[in-house]
Design a protein around this nucleic acid. Structure first.
Length: 254
DNA sequence: GTTCTTACA
DNA sequence: TGTAAGAA
């Protein structure tokens, strides 16, 4: 038995695919120790170390092409800088994953809340919320894809954000999302009449809003401030055909 | 049975 | 990057 190993043995040893090893060869990163009589690539210890080196650099986020340059003509300064940017990228990735973790937790929590409060009116205390206005929704033109494409930027995260439709007076609704700081529109802290429900279309939505008004009127609740319809589209993960909504309006003394 | 090359999604 | 084919 020779001391060298075949490509599949090397692949298994280093936990990569055979294809990937050949790919590295194609890119000039890793040549076999020699080619055997039957055209098999054979690898020795030197190649094992070299492959480990390549894999480490790939792990640091270097593109395959950059790995070559790194191994041939990078000096200590360039290596240090490479590690520095890799560190920064890693920190950014951690941040991204933390935000994702937060979002998943939020979806699960909201879904729990929704399950309990389904179809129930209740009065609850809400902390103040800052809203950022995006654009008006003219009453006739229903939500059109073009409207979003034209007026909303990439900052408006349609699926992950709570979309607030704010009805101020008789005018058209304004589409808003929550902001972390003062952003034009403030929903003050206070007692709010809240109603959560599922709805499929515009008609059902209007029906619910009339229901909401009637409920408040019946109980002679004094409503103050705008009516707000919150759409939690991400909760549609749980029900494909319907969207989750919450209606709310501040109540209390003038 | 393993690997090689080549092509393709 | 993975998968598939036919050839060695």
């Amino acid at each position: 038995m020779r001391n060298e190993i075949t490509i599949s043995e090397l692949a298994q040893l280093m936990n990569v695919s055979v294809h990937q090893i050949r790919y590295f060869e194609d890119k000039g990163l890793l040549l076999p120790a020699y080619i055997s009589g039957n055209q098999y690539r054979m690898y020795s210890m030197e190649q094992i170390y070299q492959l480990a080196h390549i894999l480490l650099l790939r792990k640091l986020g270097l593109p395959v092409q950059a790995v070559k340059a790194c191994m041939t003509d990078f000096g200590p300064d360039e290596i240090r800088q490479m590690l520095q940017t890799s560190l920064e990228n890693t920190q950014a990735e951690i941040l991204r994953l933390q935000q994702l973790q937060l979002f998943i937790g939020k979806v699960l929590q909201e879904h729990r809340d929704f399950g309990q409060e389904m179809e129930a009116y209740r009065v609850k205390w809400r902390e103040a919320v800052n809203l950022r206005r995006w654009f008006m929704l003219s009453p006739q033109t229903e939500l059109a894809a073009r409207q979003f494409a034209g007026k909303a930027g990439p900052e408006l995260n349609l699926f992950e954000a709570d979309i607030h439709y704010v009805f101020e007076g008789e005018g058209p609704a304004v589409l808003c999302t929550e902001a972390t700081e003062e952003a034009g529109l403030l929903l003050p802290a206070g007692e709010y009449l809240c109603f959560q429900f599922l709805a499929a279309g515009e008609d059902e939505l209007e029906q619910r809003m009339e229901q909401f008004s009637a409920y408040a009127a019946d109980r002679t609740l004094h409503r103050t401030g705008p009516l707000v319809l919150i759409e939690k589209s991400y909760l549609s993960l749980f029900s494909q055909d319907r969207l989750h909504y919450e209606l709310l309006q501040r109540i209390g003394t003038v």
